[in-house]
Write a protein that binds this DNA or RNA. Sequence first.
DNA 1: TTCGCCCCTGCGGAAATCCACAATGGCGTC
DNA 2: GACGCCATTGTGGATTTCCGCAGGGGCGAA
Lengths: 205, 205
Amino acid sequence: MSIAHLVDDDEAIRDALSWLLRSRGISSESWDSAEAFLADYRDGMRGCLILDIRMGAISGPELFAQLRARGCRMPAIFLTGHGDVPQAVDAIKKGAFDFIEKPFNDNELADRVIAAMQADAELFSAAATTAGIEARLALLTTREREVMERVLAGKFNKVIADELNIAMRTVEVHRSRVFEKMGVRSAVDLAQILAQLAKPDQTSS
Amino acid sequence: MSIAHLVDDDEAIRDALSWLLRSRGISSESWDSAEAFLADYRDGMRGCLILDIRMGAISGPELFAQLRARGCRMPAIFLTGHGDVPQAVDAIKKGAFDFIEKPFNDNELADRVIAAMQADAELFSAAATTAGIEARLALLTTREREVMERVLAGKFNKVIADELNIAMRTVEVHRSRVFEKMGVRSAVDLAQILAQLAKPDQTSS
DNA sequence: TTCGCCCCTGCGGAAATCCACAATGGCGTC
DNA sequence: GACGCCATTGTGGATTTCCGCAGGGGCGAA
């Protein structure tokens, strides 16, 4: 279940938003401060963030930055009462999903939240595959990784054997074990799945 | 020589900006409308764009969209007189480099322009390498491309031969010609350079 | 028509990969 | 100490790749 995580120090806004979202079939949870949310935050949370810009000690953008630093990739929608262009520009540049002025149009906001939820779903499925790849990568032994690097550099087993001062046969064994553990059947496949790992694709609006 | 391309219907602004930039060692050229700029626009132009939001028939964002459609990748800085948050958010999401309100701070604006110039330079060098790859790719014949696809799919020459209903020897010939034309020596190398082609890397402020 | 480019094919050999079978030694855990 | 995991190596053979040599047919441009 993915839910909207609402952080705003204004109870009226929290109530209005959670009611609005519920009416669209979106469940939400609320916090009255960034600190409160940070205390509850857990890796792997799903859904989206709806953050007020101005809050107590920690502002929305600051909260967002801290969450990002902690690995959170949930799409964030910022709410602001006073149209601050530089802040909006800055937020979007830093990866915010959207930046909306209060008072907001109910329909529009709900649509944006739904879009954010969808973005999160896509991010999640993308992350699932890369996580799988990384998990397999973690299973490799040191030697296997050394061999893999050189295989990806397009070197012949013979050359790799020389570089590592081991017999060609040993290289072959490592090589095939790498393929096996990574679930691929050729060096080309390996190169391709590793290439997609280093390539996060950006989605917006 | 990279220069700032200034498009604004207000002569006073154009003059002020070009003077400001000149004082920082940045040369610029000015147009008084989007139409005028579009008429002069040529592929391969270098530098950055400084676009007014509100202009005659074609607005800054519209001009930007048209340029992007025509392949222009110059970083664009938008100037706006009235702080319009939704417009700013939209512009940044669509890839604008920056969105600045008038009246602007001279120092800040100059800094942003310099940053945009630098972004353009990075884009250019990145584009140069991908352009090289695409140029080589364009040299391949249809058959060679068909073979290449299947090689990248990790298929054996034998399988490829079956799929294309040609002799294995022919596949080998195409395969080696592909390597030759692409300037690589193994299928792994090929996979890697093609992977980097599909991966534009985003740079912002 | 001649020339160039592309697609196709066969032969044969050198080089590399892939793989099953078989084994040794180190190292840490239970 | 037995067991498991890792790194290492060898033999030998099947499979694949890589490549030079040699040649045929189609097709469009000069």
